[in-house]
Amino acid sequence: MNWSDLEYVWKRQAPPAGASADVDVLRRNFEASHRKTAAALAVRDYSEAAAGLLSSAVFAYTWWRLGRDGWPFAITIALILGVSAVFCRERIRSHRRRVGPAVSLLAKLDADIAELRHQRRLIFSITTWYLAPLAASWAVAVATLAVHSARHAPPGFFIDLMKNPATASFIIAYFLVCAPLCFWWAWRMNRTAVLERLDPRIEELEKLRRDLSISQ
């Protein structure tokens, strides 16, 4: 057996019969998948935008109710809107840089590697652009409310509050355990995603790229 035998057998494969009948099914599948994808994207985009806008509206309302004391809420709102802006920028960037399947295998591979590396950078720096601003906005909001309450509460109110063991435990647990734990969990989850999912995929694609470079 030689290469010509293989070519001969290979070329004798005829296209499967009835392939044209697939078009109707395909069109239905495409329309269904298009509708589903559009709906999923709309829900995701609107929910992210809505979450940012809603929290900003709540803080703006609180600021308005507090009057001049509430000015630090401007920082809270700016930080939340900043995080939303990063999400929007990433969505637009990802849409613009998407590469279709009609490019060469090497170009597609390079684009896939670049996208994965970008996602990796983004997740690794999540503390900078997501967790830290949200933690800061939360801290500013809590501090503002605490200062305002202290000014307007009856004398000795907070001391009495902390004398009650149940209330004191709840407050301490919330501020020292629950809130930091939530931020740590978000950080941990994203880091695990990088190590367990993104890194092996990047490594696999880079190995393939290296193989191609060797052949180049």
Binding site: W10, K11, S104, L105, L106, L109, L208, D211, L212, Q216
Partner: peptide, 28 residues
């Protein structure tokens, strides 16, 4: 075979010239 070699073998067996294979794969 590795995934990229599969592509090369398929294209060669189908008789594509080097120019077309280069166009499809992106290697020179």
């Amino acid at each position: 075979m590795p995934e990229f070699d599969r592509a090369l073998v398929l294209l060669t067996l189908d008789g594509f010239p080097y120019r077309d294979i280069a166009d499809i794969t992106g290697i020179t």
